[in-house]
Write a protein that binds this DNA or RNA. Sequence first.
DNA 1: ATTTAATATTGACCACGGTCAATTATTTCC
DNA 2: GGAAATAATTGACCGTGGTCAATATTAAAT
Lengths: 196, 196
Amino acid sequence: MARAVQKRTLETRARLIAAAEGVIAEVGYEAMRVEEVVLRAGVAKGTFFAHFRDKEALLELLIGARIDTELDRIEALPAPADIPAIVRALMPLVAVMISERYVFDLILRYSGAAGVAEIGPIAQTFARTDQVLGEWLARGPFRRDVTPALLSSGVQAFLIHVIALHFCALHQKQTLQEMLMELLQAWLLPGGRIKN
Amino acid sequence: MARAVQKRTLETRARLIAAAEGVIAEVGYEAMRVEEVVLRAGVAKGTFFAHFRDKEALLELLIGARIDTELDRIEALPAPADIPAIVRALMPLVAVMISERYVFDLILRYSGAAGVAEIGPIAQTFARTDQVLGEWLARGPFRRDVTPALLSSGVQAFLIHVIALHFCALHQKQTLQEMLMELLQAWLLPGGRIKN
DNA sequence: ATTTAATATTGACCACGGTCAATTATTTCC
DNA sequence: GGAAATAATTGACCGTGGTCAATATTAAAT
């Protein structure tokens, strides 16, 4: 039978997370150094890797938590009445994802779980986004010729797309919001009216 | 006035590229080591970085070339008559992108140029994909209530989306082709018919 | 209380990408 | 042809993420 987790273990883990949050608050996600984190936490380097598979596993945890907070908020929202309402609801989530180019890269890299057994925090938020958006959109006045699941899948694709364009020097005629609005309009209300 | 490039320089560069291609053919993109490449090319490590900004700049070059080959092919194709024709045309491009998870990550990471002055090979292929797809789709029997540019932008977003799902253990009820087909159907022919 | 087994921590060590002052090769100019 | 200027190459060195055998701590068994 498995033994209970030691109190010491939880304390160490908490100290590592707190130290990492401190470092990130000062220098950002990309510039965070494991050496700096263990120094502040007062543990040896090896301890870090006893608690987290690698550096990015910890970052994934922290970023996943921030995304989850946004999904909680969206989930509690009333049904969206139109496209601008959707865009307004999504922007805080977008803000998290574009806070740093590195954060977006990391989100993309970890969005797909390699195996069912190891679905990480970010992969989980993607699955949850799909579900949350699906239910939310189904309550709004949008096209019904396709399933809500397909609709939310497309919205997710467009979200990623406009963020990628945001980081691209080439497409700067429109703002991120404008591009998202245009795509969602064409996706959710093709022909400018509700389809059945 | 700028001097002409030395013959020696071109030879060294060619040897580095050939060596890298050899290594990649054996172990793949992710496992390619700079040390192994310079060993085979018979140059010092520093020489590598005199020719390429960093390791990924070389990988970007090689992968960009492969993508460009696919775009050449698509560009030469007759106008697509229906959705399956589009999917068929895009699959070889998809094959390049999913050849390795690392390749897809790298493509995403380099798809956006940080500054206009430094648009890398992969960012260029993205701009070109937009243009090639736009012209190609405009010739097909698809919705006309939105601009061809918006249409191709959406297709690109869905391409990335289904590849991301392909690498995700969660969504394996459908094949990549089936998902792409379903999304493109809903995007290019909403309501199952052509809109004006 | 002591032994034993499981778990957590340590830090020297390694791998690998990337840097840069020094050296060597090439081109230009007289 | 030789000197000066420019360009290419070298390899010792560094930073940082990650490993692992040894050690220390904690909990369970007697």
